[in-house]
């Protein structure tokens, strides 16, 4: 299924404001292409090229992979919905899956000595380290990443 990015001016009407919407099938092979499709829209925008190259790409890849693997459990009938609100001061990225949600408070710290050599369990930690703010919906199946301008 080809990815189709929906781009529209923001309802707030600012020059640098726009909104993006993208549905991503629950297949991890789509993570890289989806990240590139969205990151390409930020060339010359409110985020520095370095933050787009690294922070935005990595955090979005983490959020998508979590939604596909843990939220939608790789179910091909389910989609992950991505909505991006880009404004003059910040970029908000909402990633929503169709799963039952989870409690982020119970995810263990992957940097503890006993967990350091594990292959998995770093996603949420990495994501939190790379953006300015992370918020979860009450149900735990939607995450909002905020990157402030700069």
């Amino acid at each position: 299924m080809p990815l189709r990015l929906d781009v529209r001016p923001s309802a707030t009407g600012g020059e640098s404001d726009f909104e993006l919407a993208l549905d991503v099938p629950s297949d991890l092979g789509y993570v890289g292409p989806a990240v590139e499709l969205i990151a390409d829209r930020f060339k010359g925008g409110v985020l520095s090229p370095r933050r787009v190259r690294f922070n935005l790409r990595t955090a979005l890849a983490e959020a998508l992979a979590n939604a596909i693997a843990y939220g939608n459990r790789h179910d091909p009938r389910r989609l992950v919905h991505v909505r991006v609100e880009a404004g003059r001061d910040a970029v908000h990225i909402h990633v929503t899956d169709a799963g039952a949600g989870f409690d982020p408070a119970v995810v263990p710290d992957p940097t503890l000595p006993g967990r350091l050599e594990r292959e998995d369990g770093r996603g949420l930690f990495v994501l939190r380290s790379l953006v300015d703010h992370v918020a979860f919906s009450a149900a735990g199946n939607s995450i909002c990443l905020t990157l402030r301008a700069g």
Partner: peptide
Amino acid sequence: TGYIDSSGLGV
């Protein structure tokens, strides 16, 4: 390399 995610670190 531009970026590495947690799965990349894990591998």
